[in-house]
Nucleic acid binder design. Sequence first.
DNA 1: TCTGGGGTCCTAGGACCC
DNA 2: TCTGGGGTCCTAGGACCC
Length: 411
Amino acid sequence: MFALADGNNFYASCERVFQPKLEGQPIVVLSNNDGCVVARSEEAKALGIAMGVPEFQIRDQIRKDGIRVFSSNYTLYGDMSNRMMTVLSSMAPAHEIYSIDECFLDFTGISEPEKHASLTRDKTKQWTGIPVTIGIGETKVLAKAANRLAKIHRREFGVLQLTAENREQWLAQLPIDKVWGIGRAHSARLIARGIKTALDFAFHDKGEVRKSMGVVGERMVWELQGVSCLGLEEIQPNKKQIICAKSFGHPLCKLSEIEEALACYTDRVGEKLRAQGSVCGAMQVFLETNAHRKDHRQYCPQVTTTIPEATSYSPALIATALGLLRKIWKPGFLYKKVGVGLLELTETVQTDLFAHVANPVAKSRIQEVVDKLEGRVRWGSMGFDEDWKLKAERRSNRWTTELTELPIVRA
DNA sequence: TCTGGGGTCCTAGGACCC
DNA sequence: TCTGGGGTCCTAGGACCC
């Protein structure tokens, strides 16, 4: 038995925890660079604000309807996520953190699953301030479906269990495109063939599904029928690639500015790489112009190289990245984004037979010290101006992680 | 003027091996 | 004239997730 718990309108709910006066008000949270809407409170959804819509397109409505707008505050959301996961995981023998706001729980052997889920929900709300919805089913896909259905039909309870008895009745109410694993492309094809609901899909011919959707599709059908194919993954495996790519606050054309941004992004992926104890054996760097500007010349080059002696040492990574950038950068374009990807991550270094003798121990000691200083020193190539920095003009305080931004209570 | 970021898995096809 | 069988590795592209 699986349960899936997820935070309702997670980012918007995080904003409310430390600003309770926002309760009942329409809230939206914007993507990086204050670009698009990535989270909405129920009130904002009711006003017709669509997911993913660019902020500038709804500026009039924001003013007219008094919608509160926030830049994304990932420091806060990450910390709130940790708190939420701590409470959720305490309510089951095993769990899998699936995303920043979702967690699968092992509910096997729990005698009254719905009651236990309600308890879990109350506790999470009380201890963290985050409202959650919990779906329960015999497979992960069914738990996901139950969660979805609870949001639509059981908002006041926030809990729903699919059982062998009520399953078909509920699945008939779930549109096919809301099934976990069925995206835009597949749902369009399925609807064209008359498969409109999760129930239709659950009874669709498996051979045919296998042919058109591969093994992934067939697994979905089995799972909808109550046969578990996807297990709980309690330990999250190391990342196979780590990417950092961000739009600039304004378009850049000078190589030197882009170099500084890229050096910063590379240092960041390096940190993540070391955090999981890996080294990287290949790297990709790419540049993008603004695809929305049809009147501008477009240029989106990308280059990949192998790193003969896999490393996690930031200066080495940065040197490689800057070398790749210089290969693809051309003057005369307005660049909007630069990105770096670390690929071929492993946990062991194959030393280069023909390389000069370096001193890897000394390098890692330097890196250790720099990591310990947590951003108080920086590599020279990262620069100091950060003119390219992305916009975050309406970010709320980092209430839980910065001493200078703690909430103040007057009593 | 302004349009996000970061991942995974699967499949098909080509190149190559014995 | 006839032209096998079994396998691996890599890459690109598609589809999906949050």
